[in-house]
Design a binder for these strands. Structure first.
Lengths: 196, 196, 196, 196
DNA sequence: AATGAATGAGGATTCATTCAT
DNA sequence: CATGAATGAATCCTCATTCAT
C-alpha cells in the first residue's frame, strides 16, 4: 500500500477538525460550555474521544478554536462595509450585524454566554475588548460625520442595542422575535439622510 | 438548658440563609453557576458545606432562592412607576431599570447568564417570559399613548436596549461604561413631550 | 412551678424511648437499617433528632435496644412451653414460633436482615448463636424422646424450616403466604404420637 | 500505532468487567450492598473508581449485572433436571439446589439479603417472584404425581426449607452447618418411592 | 491518524453526631 | 428534658485528560 501523501493526511485532518468544531459549537451553544462534556462532543461529531486531544490540547483550546474559526467566517461580512457615504456605511454595518445573527446564531450565543464569564476565559476578554473598541471608533466616527451631537454616546447606544437584540433573539428565538422588522426599523432610523 | 424558642431558631435560620444567599449570589455572578461549587459557596459564607443542605434541597434550589429573594428587593422600584402622564411614566420605567442595574448588578448578571441556559433551568424560563410579557404590554401601551407609529416594535427596541445596556454594564463595568449618561440620554430621547 | 419528681421524669423518659424504639423498628424493618437515617426515625417518632442521642449513644446502640426490647416481649411466648409430653411440647414450640412471626413480623424481618450482616453487627452474632444453640439442644432432646432416629439432624431441619418460613412470610407477605395452613401442617406432621 | 481491533477491546472490556463483578459480589455478599462503597469495590478489583462507571451506569446497575451474570452460571444446574420419574426428578431438584448453594454461596447470600429489601430494588422483586412461581408450579406438579395429599402446601414447605437451609448455611457457615447430611436427609425423605 | 480503556481529582449530596441553649 | 443548627467525613458519580496500541 502506498503511503498516503502528506496532502491526503492534511485533508483528513481538516475534515476531522471541522466535524469536531461544528459539533462542539452546536452543543456549546445549546447547553453551555460547562454542561457539555468532551465525550458528548466526540460522540456528536462521530469520532473518538481521544481524537479530540490529537487536535486540541484541551477543552478550552477547542472553544477558542471554534470561536476563531467562525469569527473568521463571519468577518467576511464586515469587509464590504466601507463606503464614502456615512448613511450607506451605517446601513452596511447594520446589515452585517443582522447577517451575523442570522448566519451564525450559535456562535453569537456561545460568545454572549462566554462574555459573561470573561475572567474564566482570558482569551475571550481580549477578543471582546478589541472588537468593541474597533466598533466604537468606527461608529462614533460615522455618527460624527452624520452630524450627531454626541457621537461617542450614540455609538454606545447602538452597540448596546445590537447586544440586546442578540440576547433577545437568542433567548426568545425567531418565531417571537422578528429580526426583519427590527432591522428595517434600525435602517430607517439611522440611515436616513434627512434625520440630521 | 431550656431549648431555644422557635423565634430564636427562626433568627438563626434567617441569618444563615442570608449569609448563604449573599455569598452564593456574589460567586454565581462572578464566575457563573456551573463554575462555582457548593463547597466554595459555603466557605465564602463562612459555614460548613453541610449547612447549605439544611436550608436548600440542592444547588439549583439555592439559585432559585437567590433569585426570588433579590427579585423581591428589586421589585420595590417598580411599584412607584404608575403615572397618568405617559412621558413621566416612561421616565419612571427607565429610572427603575437603571436603578435595578445599579443596586443589583450581581442579580442582573446572574439572571442574564441563566437566561442563556433556559432549557437547563425551567424555572428561569417561566420567570423571564412572564417579566418580558408584562414589560412589553406596558411599554407598548405607553408608546401608543405617546403617539408612536409602531408601539409594539418600539417597545421591543427599548426592551432590547435595556438588555444590551445590561450586558455591556456587566461585561465592561462602571469605569468604561457610564450608566448615568446613558440614562440621561434615554430620558431625553423618550420622555420629551415635544417629540411626538 | 414545683420541680417534677424523678418519677415523673422517669415516665417521660420511658415514653420517649418507647416512641423512638417503635418508630425505628418500623422503619428499619421496612427499609433496612442502612437505608433509614436517624432524622427519619426522629421525625417518624415525632421527636427531635437530638433526643435520640439523649437516650442512645449511636444509631447502632438504638438497633440493639430495639432488638432487646422486642425480644423480651416475644420471649414471653416461650415461657409456657414446657410440658412433660414431648409431642405437646413440640406443638407449643411450633405455636410459639408462629406466634412470634404473627405478633412481631417487623422484629423478625429486622433480625433476619441483620443476621446476614453479622460481621458488621457483633452483638447480633452472639445473640443469634445463643438462641440457635438453645433451640437446637431443646429440639434435639425432644426429637430423641419422640423416638426419631437422628434427633440432631431432625432439629436442624426443623430449625431451617422455621427460618425459611420466616423469610417467605417476610418477602411474600400474608396474602400469598398462608401462615395458618403451614402451622397446621407442621403440627400435624410433628406432633402426632403415632408417627414414631 | 494502529488502533486496537474491536476484538482486542472486547477482551479488555470483558476482563475488567469480570474483575469488577467478581470483586463486587464478594464484598456485597460479605458486608451487604449498602455497606460497600464503589471505591472499595474498585480497590478490591484492582482498578480505579472511575472505571466502574465506564461499565456500569450506577452501583445498582452493577448489582443487577452481578446477579444476571452469576444466575446464568447457576442455571446450568437446572437444565438437566427433567426426568419421567417424579422421584428421580425431585432428587435432581434437591441436588441442583444444594449444588447452587455449594458453588455460588456468595450469590445466594447477596440474593437473600436483597430479597429482604425488595421494594428498594425493583428488579429483584420481579426476578424472585418469577423464580418462586416457576418452582412452586414444578414442585407441586411433582408432589401430585408422587401421590401427596396436598401438593401445593407440600411444595411450599419444601421451598421454605430450601430458603431456611440457605439462610443457615449463610449465617453459620460450613463447619457448623453440614450441607451433605442435610442433602442426604432430604433425598431420603422425599425421593423414596415407598413413602407414598 | 484513531481508538477507547483507564485514571483520579473534584463535585453534589447525605448523614451520624455534637452542642449551645 | 428537648431542640434543631452546625459540622465534616464519606458516598456516588462525572469528566477532562492520558496512553498503549
Amino acid at each position: 500500500m502506498a503511503p498516503r501523501s502528506s496532502k491526503q493526511f492534511e485533508e483528513i485532518r481538516e475534515k476531522s477538525k471541522e466535524k469536531l468544531v461544528y459539533a462542539a459549537l452546536e452543543l456549546f451553544a445549546t447547553h453551555g460550555y460547562d454542561r457539555v462534556s468532551v465525550s458528548q462532543i466526540a460522540k456528536h461529531a462521530g469520532v473518538s474521544k481521544g481524537l479530540v486531544y490529537n487536535y486540541y490540547a484541551s477543552k478550552e483550546d477547542l472553544v477558542q478554536a471554534i470561536i476563531e474559526t467562525y469569527m473568521e467566517v463571519g468577518e467576511v461580512l464586515w469587509r464590504e462595509i466601507a463606503d464614502p457615504d456615512p448613511w450607506t456605511m451605517m446601513r452596511n454595518i447594520i446589515r452585517a450585524t443582522f447577517g451575523m445573527l442570522r448566519t451564525q446564531p450559535d456562535l453569537m450565543k456561545l460568545l454572549t454566554g462566554l462574555s459573561l464569564q470573561m475572567d474564566q476565559f482570558p482569551f475571550i476578554k481580549g477578543l471582546i475588548e478589541k472588537k468593541a473598541e474597533g466598533y466604537l471608533l468606527l461608529a462614533a466616527n460615522l455618527f460624527e460625520k452624520m452630524g450627531y451631537k454626541n457621537p461617542a454616546l450614540e455609538s454606545r447606544v447602538l452597540g448596546a442595542l445590537f447586544d440586546g437584540i442578540c440576547v433577545q433573539y437568542i433567548t426568545m428565538g425567531p418565531p417571537q422575535f422578528d429580526l426583519d422588522s427590527m432591522e428595517n426599523y434600525l435602517i430607517e432610523k439611522y440611515c436616513n439622510n434627512e434625520e440630521a
